[in-house]
Design a protein around this nucleic acid. Structure first.
Lengths: 247, 247
DNA sequence: ACTGATAAAGCGAGCGTTCGCTCGGAAACG
DNA sequence: CGTTTCCGAGCGAACGCTCGCTTTATCAGT
């Protein structure tokens, strides 16, 4: 098995200090396995999990390189070392494989963003910064998954496309809610644009969509997070961070 | 010929007051035709132009609906009313068709952003606002072209992918240059993040990538432009606009 | 500990279909 | 009548997917 960007990830905690655990590759595959149990013919869970990791890792690598549509199942068979017939014991169609990856992404987003730590939730300003931090770190952890989900979204079958839009709307609502609370409590300016929640999203997506660019330029994830946080604070009329990223 | 988002566009001037003309569909196809003359077997220019418009319009519509890869040339033949053999007198491979669309986009971007009116270029602040305004209006005018270019970028052959990255880097450099000049002249804060030019881009792309969302929500292009302009001014430490968008 | 039966998992040639693309001839034009 | 434009059946290749078979794992019974 060739080294992948995900394999290094154990069930580790991100350096945000809030104690939210990021899902490891095994966690993701287990969740995918559980929610597609009826489509998977393999009985022994540990065998299924190991091979599913192989399949999904290879599928993400190939898809992110040439596109899901252009990735043939023969490509996937070769890359994963599993025969054509073997692959079809883990999904009943190529579309199901796509759905599996999507379910992993949307599940992880909800799992990570839905339950902020109590001390953060109490303060809209801290909550907003936490959402930005957690989202960027989650996408970093699951980079191939998010690039896949983002880039292939438009080729989804209709049902999956709707699901993707809903998932995005949900994420946006997290930001909308916290900003609304912040305005109500006086932490954010009342003149904050109603478009603000929608405009935060592309700033978060930028990190994983153009990941190679920032790696090439030597921009660290901490710098990126701090910059976006500062930009959002500026736009919401909140006070500056203690450590301005531009200095 | 079915009505398309582009057909309404004559060679009209955007409402920015700066007098920069946006390219019409005919302009675009003519430029594509000129730069691919050797690949196109048709001799009479007016015939070639009319059919090329048909082909490109249909290709954009189909590709933006199901993806370029998934659009078969038989689909394109049916949609454009031109036979398979007929299509191949306008390009020698499907990849060439893709390149044609890309060249139209990158050409239009450079044509629109490279030469700001003199009175705008003199003032970094006005120049920055003009870049945002012009870029968003250009993408609105050429919506199917930009959606195509953005969504299909990662499936390009390697040479075209590099060209797309270069084109994006060029756009970013326009913002980088004007911000650098603004900092030098004191119009923008020296603490402005060096990431700022890179972060403006996704805010501009958001408009056409999620165009349907903003249409559904009734967000006008003027509101969107003003909001992004305000956000960038906030982040660069410049003074506020006369008419804040949030009020 | 070994064996043989039963089930689980793995395999890849082959099926029907569709793809990008070609080419010889018909149609339209000047 | 020569030239330009248009046409669509047909080519080889590659696609998603299947299925009969082999290999491997499991575990009584001796």
């Amino acid at each position: 098995m060739s080294p992948s960007p995900m394999t290094r990830a154990a069930t580790q905690t991100a350096a945000t200090g809030t104690g939210i655990a990021m899902p490891s590759l095994s966690d993701l595959c287990r969740s995918v396995l559980d929610s597609n149990r009826e489509k998977i013919a393999i009985q022994k869970p540990d065998v299924a999990l190991r091979k599913l990791e192989l399949i999904l890792t290879s599928a993400l690598e190939l898809s992110n390189g040439k596109g899901f549509q252009a990735m043939s199942l023969r490509d996937l068979s070769r890359a994963s070392g599993i025969s054509m017939g073997g692959l079809y014991q883990y999904f009943d169609s190529k579309t199901t494989l796509l759905k599996m990856i999507l379910s992993g992404v949307s599940g992880a987003v909800e799992g990570a963003l839905a339950d902020p730590p109590p001390e953060v939730e109490a303060d809209p300003r801290a909550h907003l910064l936490w959402l930005i931090d957690t989202h960027v770190r989650l996408t970093e952890q699951m980079l191939p998954w998010f690039t896949f989900s983002y880039m292939e979204a438009k080729n989804f079958p209709l049902a999956e496309r709707r699901a993707a839009i809903d998932s995005e709307a949900l994420t946006e609502s997290y930001f909308a809610n916290v900003i609304a609370r912040g305005i109500a409590s006086g932490a954010f300016a009342g003149s904050t644009s109603p478009l603000m929640p929608a405009l935060i999203k592309p700033l978060l997506q930028e990190w994983y969509v153009k990941r190679a660019k920032y790696r090439r330029r030597g921009v660290t994830i901490e710098t990126y997070i701090a910059t976006v946080q500062q930009m959002v604070l500026d736009a919401t009329g909140a006070k500056a961070l203690e450590t301005p990223p531009g200095g």
